[in-house]
């Protein structure tokens, strides 16, 4: 009879709220140019949501704004307008909207956009966000966990692996800011990450491990490129990790209950 609050749009709004520390810090340091970029990505993302609403009766979602924010902050610099349009259109449509909207997608549309841009226009330089933005990722993650819209296990798993690697090899500290920002903006998306408890730990650990692997083995890659690529692969592996966790869980139950 009565309804609680935790429907899809509330989760999207809380995620947006959790992103605010990072977004505001980024806008503060990026100035008018950053604002223009943000408005452009929000407009394009919103436009595609409108098109799918009119063509497929798919209700638009605030999650489109999440995509816009993440793409505006992380996309390679010096892209022409057309390139940026192409990238975000591809990511929104093929990463999210054709599956039926946010909640039914497999990958985070922003991850798809950024990977697409990175592979297609590999000459464009990746952004190097200022340290305050990277620090702002910490309150963002904390807010996400407190609201219950991000998985604490995933974040702790990623931080544990990254921290361990940092202790082993101090030269990895250059990768940390980018990894933290990508963790908050892309990896901890509740839809595109693992949903089981064990899966969450594994998903976070996998992201951390991939970042470390790429940072040590991938010569000449920008930190942001490394983090985005790790996010894409970790996100792709999430359903597999969930399946593994569920298989282990059912095996344990079968042993216990026959």
């Amino acid at each position: 009879m009565r309804r609680g609050l935790w429907d899809r749009e509330m989760v999207a709004l809380l995620l947006l709220l959790a992103m605010m520390p990072m977004t505001l810090a980024w806008l503060w340091f990026g100035g008018v140019e950053a604002l223009g970029r943000l408005i452009l990505t929000l407009l394009v993302s919103g436009l595609w949501h409108m098109i799918f609403m009119l063509a497929r009766a798919q209700p638009p979602s605030f999650a489109g704004a999440l995509t816009g924010v993440a793409v505006a902050m992380l996309a390679p610099q010096d892209l022409s307008l057309l390139q940026l349009l192409l990238g975000i259109s591809f990511g929104s449509v093929m990463g999210e909207l054709v599956f039926g909207g946010w909640g039914r997608n497999v990958l985070n549309p922003a991850t798809v956009t950024l990977a697409f841009l990175g592979f297609s226009f590999s000459a464009a330089p990746w952004p190097d966000l200022v340290p305050p933005v990277a620090w702002a990722a910490l309150p963002a993650l904390a807010m996400g966990v407190i609201f219950g819209v991000m998985s604490a296990r995933l974040i702790l798993g990623a931080l544990a692996v990254l921290g361990g690697a940092l202790i082993a090899d101090a030269s990895l500290s250059t990768i940390f800011p980018a990894a933290g920002i990508v963790l908050a903006l892309l990896v901890s998306d509740p839809v595109a990450s693992a949903s089981t408890r064990l899966g969450g730990w594994l998903n976070g650990a996998l992201f951390g491990a991939l970042v470390v692997l790429f940072a040590t083995g991938w010569q000449g890659a920008a930190p942001m490129h490394v983090a985005v690529s790790a996010a894409l692969l970790a996100s792709l592996a999430a359903p597999l990790l969930d399946e593994t966790a569920i298989a282990l869980w059912t095996a344990r139950r079968r042993k216990r209950h026959g």
């Binding site: 935790w6 429907d7 899809r8 749009e9 909640g103 219950g148 819209v149």
Partner: peptide
Amino acid sequence: APIIPTAALEQSLGGSALPAA
């Protein structure tokens, strides 16, 4: 609209009792 896997969903199905999502 589909249900997003959050802590609210997990806790309302008994935490670790079963894979809620």
